[in-house]
Amino acid sequence: MLTVRELDCFYSDLQVLRGVSLDVGEGEVVALFGPNGHGKSTLLKAICGLQPPKRGSIRFKGEEIAGLPAHQIVERGLAYIPEERHLFSDMTVLENLYLGAYPRHARPVLKKNLEFVFHIFPRLAERRHQLCSTLSGGEARMVAIGRGLMSETSLLMVDEPSIGLSPGMKMAVFDAIRQIHCERGMTILIVEQEIQHALEMSDRIYLIKKGQIAFERRREEVQVDEIERAYF
């Protein structure tokens, strides 16, 4: 579904990604590990168009999307849930979710997707008329994921969904992601620091270090401590 080849990415003069290649197949859950500041988030941002790559190719459903503006990538069915959430804080939960269905192809299925979001996150249904600036960190994370689901996406890229959450809330978020995969057959690319949990739900993992792919493994072939060791 997603094929990344030889991707180079820069922040002004600083090279953050060096020849990164990665594949995500239809219906797969792929986890991306690696130390902080080594290019995981940059890779996701490059794929979704927020940080256009300098060189290399990104093919999504067979179509080249590298360098397209972000909104055109969303319209092709690729959703990105940023680590920073970027909610519309002066709007209600419901308004945020409606805006998630901004792309034209998502409008006709808005009702169905909204029901699904409320099914996964019943808490959001209760708070639908609350302003997002008044939500807790976990609830805001749910809105961010829900908003991504509203865009009728076929690939969900989630950037550190559990960061800054209480242990209980972390579990709830991981359960929700697992549920999204099981019930919808959603293809998921996830960046996470909670190696144990992310490993359990994924089919394959990549480890990215110093802007390069250090290794790629199937879940059966890898142990948590091997990943942890690779961090140092």
Binding site: A70, H71, E75, P82, H86, G100, R147
Partner: peptide, 9 residues
């Protein structure tokens, strides 16, 4: 960035 993520041009 939020607007970009939901596909607003």
């Amino acid at each position: 960035p939020g607007a970009q993520v939901v596909g607003i041009n």
